[in-house]
Each structure stands twice: as structure tokens, then as C-alpha cells.
Design a protein around this nucleic acid. Sequence first.
RNA 1: GCGGGGGUUGCCGAGCCAGGAAAAGGCGCAGGGCUUAAGACCCUGUCCCGGAGGGGUCCGCGGGUUCAAAUCCCGCCCCCCGCACCA
Length: 982
Amino acid sequence: MVDFHEIERKWQEEWRKSRIFEAEPDERPKFFITIPYPYLNGNLHAGHTRTLTIGDAVARYMRMNGYNVLFPMGYHVTGTPIIGLAERIAKKDPETIRVYTEYHDVPLEELLKLDTPEKIVEYFSREATKALKSIGYSIDWRRTFTTMDEPYQKFIEWQYWKLKEKGLVVKGSHPVRYCPNDENPVEDHDLMKGENATIVDFTVIKLYSFEENLVVFPCATLRPETVFGVTNLWVNPEKDYVVAEVNGEKWVVSKEAAEKLVHQEKEVKIIKEVKGKDVVGNLVVNPVLVAMLAEELLEFASGDLKKLFEELCKIKDRKERIAKVVENIEFIVKELILLFKEVKNSTLRMVVVPILPASFVDTDNATGVVMSVPAHAPYDYVALEELKKSSEFKELASIEPIVLIKVEEYAVPAKEISEELGIKSQNERELLDKATKIVYRKEFHKGVLLDNTLYPGMHVSKVKDVLQRDLIELGIGDIFYEFSEKPVVCRCGAKCVVKIVRDQWFLNYSNPEWKKKVFELLDRMRIIPDYYKEEFRNKVEWLKDKACARRKGLGTRIPWDKEWLIESLSDSTIYMCYYILAKYINAGKLKAENIKPELLDYVFLGKGKAEDVAEKSNLSKEIVEEIRREFEYWYPVDLRSSGKDLVANHLLFFLFHHVAIFPPELWPKAIAVNGYVSLEGKKMSKSKGPLLTMKRAVSEFGADVTRMYILHAAEYDSDADWRRKDVENLVAHLNRFYALMEEYYTKDVEGCFLDRWLISRMQKAIKETRKAMENLQTRRAVNSAFFEVMNDVKWYLRRGGKNPQIIFDDWLKLLAPFIPHICEEIWHKKHNSFVSVESYPEYDESKVDQVAEVAEEYIKSLMDDIKEVLKFVDAKVVYIAPAEEWKKEVAKVALEAKNFKEAMKELMKDEKLRSMGKEVSNFVKKVLKEKELVDLDERKVIEENIEFLEKELGVKVVVDESKVPEEKRKSSMPGKPAVYAE
RNA sequence: GCGGGGGUUGCCGAGCCAGGAAAAGGCGCAGGGCUUAAGACCCUGUCCCGGAGGGGUCCGCGGGUUCAAAUCCCGCCCCCCGCACCA
């Protein structure tokens, strides 16, 4: 057993001393690779290890291919989790202590000291650096930083001023999860219950009643289009409601809703408390339908009301007509209700509807007042049917459903589906939910709005946003934010609510101009694997404005509004260019006070004159110019390699901000995405465990083992599984590799006929490995560079080869990006240079010896054939007869064709051959793959290897046509001699 | 629901875009070798049948195209991931 740890430490130290990974601009082509900096609320783990190791392998590969490679690393610390962690450690939260001692491997006494964010950052950045060094990444350590560094904050400020100037940071408000008890927004980890709850926006539609003055019944719905089919309202008769003044209007809502509204930018003054049943029986007017049905209503109106309706009828635009109704709402409501009491005809019944009791109404959901649309909502239909049977509400409930959506299969969907499922009562919740789902699905995807709506012909899937906006514009709509799941409970035990945060700063990602540029960038950049390009396009499409300001957390303040901190994903978008500054900052050549906007304008955007900038920032002209030159040399980013979890957020912002700040020639060139790492099949979790830290993996198995395992465990976005057993297996593999190298590497070459074969095989491995690396397929690369070559070497030795070392130099170089320490150690047994900066092996066609390869294949397949025969015959001698000459001639003819397809096409014209398509294809494929086969002197090859065959097979082997019976000889083919055993 | 990715022989997992070998590789299992022995290592086998290198069946399900389908086309079923302001 070799002590890999010692080797690893040794070469890490040598690399450091020789500074081979410190990147300075020079005349070589450059390659700038970046990995998203890790967030330091814990130790680096196997997930980081995967992304970083892929990055390092690529960095090393490109370096060996003659590129000047810059591979830097920083640390992300802004945001709230570190603060939360510090608080929990200070409180000695037992779960936190368990996870951090057990999984993050922080010694208890150390952990307890980490009671402030600063100490946490200090500790974990030190640990991270140790871990990254111990695994041997080729990072330029002079460029590291954390996002709380003062110069970094200057850089972020500059960036936000730029965005502001371009109008890309705008003000707005948005809903957040909020704890009324703590008076604070609630983070995920501060939740006791309801982690999966999302915030949904109910459309509130106002229907109006009248007593003394106007009373608003704000109905909450997720389907605003159903306002055209309202037949009544529902309230829960047993629950508490309030009459309250809400932003100057008199509203009736549930007691819970009144409390929630306070957080949603509403001024709420409670006038009185009532029970649901107190408002049952009230009549309300649906202003939307009043407008829609103005012509018919005109017939029944008289006096001023008639005049008003005459005016309404003149307005052809339905939306304008609604506006007119709203303008006169109080008068209309009052009059229509009076009219309704006298004339109960079907038209009036549609615009003046009763409030009815329903037990299914949840007063803790939105306003607690809902519209009833029996044609399209099974709950409504069933509840109404029930009421029709009760004596008390028979009269009021005798209502016909109003259909407003056309779907293929149903006339009155809610009715038909409820009947199909045999639902009798509104208490059959499970069935009703099922029915609702069916109706919703059908209508949402295939439903089209009918003529009795504002948008006839529009698809239901499109209408929600449009209508919500219209209703709000008209003053009869509103939004009520509610959780999708309940309850949502804060750690403090209080129920969370949705709160609207006002005057928040937003990144205006919905800006079409901005998006257009991102699409341009996507078109020209490489995304690996390629199907993620489509994914990215969809996400760009979907991205809306993002709140980029916070009240709480670590970070940089918004420079023009210091109340706010810049949100932590929003300060991590173009920081790759900061690595250029970081080198000067760490060297003491650049200080926070030097970093003026003018300097950054000059360095990053080429604006201004060096002299002016130098004076302004109190630096020498030379250094200003040097930084600018260095930036120009390294930028743009050539590859950003990342875990797939960052696709829908960070990587997207990375693209958006680059196109916003930089000219097209500085836009990133490529993004690569990789999958997660699980632990013995279990998902890892930073905050709950299980977790394997990078440090532990390396100290237990070694850097090279860890690297190679993780590179080989999975490809692209598929997930890798860390299995101890497999890792231990790999340790054994690498030990064997090392032993093999030690045995042969420095030995003299004796010369052996098989050498050409081994060298030829090596060329294939080089070609394969290079191809895999160009596509960032590390699994494939490791497979061909290590396992396949290893198998060839084994075969070579088994065949009696004496000089495997003839390929060892190439082999070491081939493997250096993956297992650099072991390669370096062995390499130095013969060389004084670093293999890490040697040239990567080139595929050399002239070294490919197809004849030698075909001959080996021939021997292998002959062995298989003989073994197959020996399975059935207990023989002492095997006679072999190569195919007759004329058969070779036929094969040659087949070979005239350019390729397999051509050959097959030609041959398949023959009726007879067609019936044997499979056999023919097999043969042609074989011959084409190994063209040399037809020219192979089979007799000679066998005779040269007779000793080997006899040893392997344990029988005597003789090439003698005369001993092979005629019927056996018939079946021989070039490459497949007849065999006879006796 | 929308969007993206999948379903391969005991398991993991290549192959699919560019149709052509029961289908790479690994794990597991079985036999043999090496060993005092175990482990490691090296061979061999691992869908079914077969006393001659052969035959049969096979890649989620059902159709189709073709001399030939895991691969192409159509329909269906199932699984994973994202849907946000959180890193």
C-alpha cells in the first residue's frame, strides 16, 4: 500500500512553491474558467467536490493543451443563512450543534466559538481553503476574496449604479411570508410548518349590496373569468365575519381576512362583528353582468335608472360599459335591488344574486366570501342542489347554472361531473376536490370563453392575468395574497401571513429589451449538455422582476437607498471580473479607497483616460493601465461550470447582468451544468445531514481517489452516488496502478512484437479521452484514460508483453488532469519537470497499427471460438483451417463500397442475401471495421501465437486444413477460421 | 398544470441524435487459478435451450416504417427535477 496522502502533500507543496498555477497574462491563448463560489454556512461537501473537480480537470486539461489558464476561487457570505447560523450557535441550538459536529466535522469547542457571522466566515473560509488545497485544485490563490470585503462592496455599488443608470433597477412592492409576532419576513429555516407553501394571488372581485350605503362583498377566486357565471355568493353561516372600513369602502369579510388585509397594504377599521348567517339572504349586484346585460335590463327600468341604461346601451365597448356602471354603482345597486324585489325575472336574477350559506367555505382562506358558479365549480353545484332541498332556502336557491366556458365533452361541466361521480353533499370533500380538478384541467387547457364574457373566444389558460388586470383597473377588482398550503407556522409558534413589502427595489428582468439581449447571448454561447440551452431559454422567458433588496442579512447597501441591502444572489452576477482586481487588492496595490467608479469604468468598460482615472483614484497611471490590460486579457469568461441547482437562478442572473453591463465581445462563452452527489443513495443535506465533507473524503481516501471517483461516478446532469464500497474498490485500482508503474516505469525496453499493438491502442485512448474532455464528459474521459488503458496493459502483459512502460509517459500525461498527485510522483522518477504543465498527448495517426490491432482481435475471437467448441468436446488437439482464398476475394468486393451503409445497400439488392440480412450485416460490419482482416495472413498470425493459445486453452493447436472435415471448412470466413477438435 | 430530463438484461449504467453482433463497463453472484487459509489479485461464466462455434427470447406498454428497430414514426402508461426572490 502506498501512502497517497504523503505524495499528495508533497506535490501540493511543490506546486505552490513553483507557482505554476498562478496565472499572469502572456502571449499564449487564455482560458478563463470559473466555478460559482461556495456559500460558507458550512464546510465544503461532496456536491462542491463534484463541480470543482470537473472544473479543475478542465483547467488542468486546458493548461496542458497550451492555454494560459486562470482558475480562481472566492467565497460567498452575503445573505441571511450565516446570520441565522450564528444566532443558532449562540443559542446553542441542539439540532444545529448535532449537524455541525456530526456532519460538518466541526469540533464542538470550535463550533461554540462561532457565535457571530464574522467568526463563521473566518472559520469556514479557512477550512474551505484548506480543503481546496488538500484536494489539489490548480487554483490561483492570489485572487481569493469574500463578498463582505470592503473593496468587493465598492465593486457591487458600482455595478448597481450602472444598472440604475440603465433603468434596470426599479421600485415596486411584492408579497413575502411574514411573521406578525416577530414582525419580520420568515426564511425557510425559520419555519416550523409549511415549507412547501407558495404564495398565490387570489383575484378579489367586488359585488355590491346596499343598506344605508354601499356594502362591498369582496369575493376571492383563482378563476376570475367565472365572474360571468355567478349565481349567488357563499359565506359560512357558523363562522365569524366583520363589517369593516377597508380603504374607505365598507367591506364584509371573514374575521381572519380582516387581520390579513392589514398586511396587504389595506387600512382596516372594524365597524362590527357579525356571524355568517347574519348576512345570508342579502342581495348583491354583479356590476360586470349589469354591463353585459344592459340591453335586457333596459326593459324593466324606469325613471333615472332607465336613462342610465339607455346611456349604457350606447357604449359598445364592454369594458368601457363596465366602467360606466362602476361610476354609478351606488345608484345602480340601490335601484336594482329594489327592482328585483318587485320583478323577479330571469335577467334580473342574473345581476342581483343572493348570499347563501355553505359549510365548505373556509373563512381562513382569502376573504371568506366566495362567488358561486355552479356551471363550472362542483362545490358550488352540489351545495346549491343541497339547498334546493332545504325548506328555508328553496326559493332563493332555485337558480340555473350559467355556462360561460365551452369545452368539448360537457355542456354544464360541474353538473355532469358531479353527477358522474355521484356526489350528493358538499361534505364529500375528497370527491369534490377530484371533480374540481377534472373540471379545472379540462377547462383550463381546452376551454374557450363564450359570448357572454368579456373576451369571447379567448382560451381560459390566457384569460386570468388579463382579466385580473382589467378588474383592478375598473376598480372592482383587487388581489388577495394567500398561502397555497396551510398552516404556515413560524418557529416562534405564530401563524405566518402574507405581507406586502412596499417600495422594494427590483431588477427589471421582465424588461423585453433586456431579455432580447439574453436570448442573443444564449444563441451564441455553448451550453453543456446542449439540451440545457432550451431549458435556459424557457427560464429566461419565464423570469419576472426580482426583488433585489433586503432589510436583513450580510451584504452591500444599495448605494442610493442605504436602508436596503442588496440581496445575496443579486450581488453575485458579474463578480468573475473581480478576480482581476482581487490580485491587486491582495497584493496591497489596490485598496478600497482607490476603487472609485471612474476606476471601474476604465478597467471594465474602457471609459475615460488613464491619467484622469489615476488621479481620481489616487493610483499611478501605470497600475491603472496594467489592471485594464489584465482585464482585457482574461475577459470574457470562457467557461462557467456549475451544479444544476443554479440554472434557474444564479446562472440566469449571470447572463442577464453580463449583457446589461458588458459589450457583446465580453459576454461569457460557455456554461456547463453537472448533477448532484448523493450518499449511499441518500440525498445530502447541509442543514440536516447526511453530508460528506470534502475534507473528510480526502483525509479518508486521498485526493486522487476522491477526484477520480467523483469524475467517474456520473456524467453531465445525472446524479452521482458516493458509495463507500466502490470508493474502496477504486483505492485498490489506484494501488495496482501505482505498483504497475513502480515495477516498469524506469525499466529498459527490450523490444517485443506486441509493442506496436500497445502503442496503437494508446492512440485510441488519447483520441477518446480528448474527445470526451472537449465535451466535458469526465466519466467517459476517465473511463478511456484509465480503465480502458489498464485493460489493454493487462492484456498486453498476459500475452507476454515485456515493455508496458513504452506508453507510460503518455499515460501519465493523459491521467494528470484527473489524478495529478500520483502522476506527478511517478513522473518525477524519470523527469525533472511537472507533468501538470507538460503537453497533453496528441493523437498520432502514424502510430496506429491497424494490422497489429486486427491481429489481436483475431486471436481473441479465435480463442473464444475454440473455447466454445471445447465446451462440448473433450479434445486434446484443435485443428484450424483459415478461410479459402476465394472467400477473401468476395470480401474484397464487398469492401469496394465506401461505408457500411453503402455496402449494405448494394448487398441488400440481392434477394438471397436479403433473407440473411442479419448475418450479412454482421460480416460486413466486421470486415469494414477491420479492413486489414482480408489481407491478414491468418496462418502466420496463428503460428506466431501458437504457444500462447496452447497455454491459454490447454490443448494442442495445429494449423492444418487437411485435418478439418469439409463440412466444417464450408463455414469458414475471412477472420473466422474453421475449427475442428478431437 | 407548464417546462426540461428519463424508463435498457439481478442492481448501477453505456448505446438512441447519424437503424445493422444478447446489447460496453462496473457491482453482485458462481466456478477455476494463486494461496497453509481468508482477503486481495488473475482467468471464466452469469436471459433460456444446446454433446461443435448454433438456436430462441429480449431494451416501460401497444401499433407502424424497414431486408433489419433499444435506436426512426404514432398513441399510451409511469418516474425524476424546476416553477422563484432562497442559497
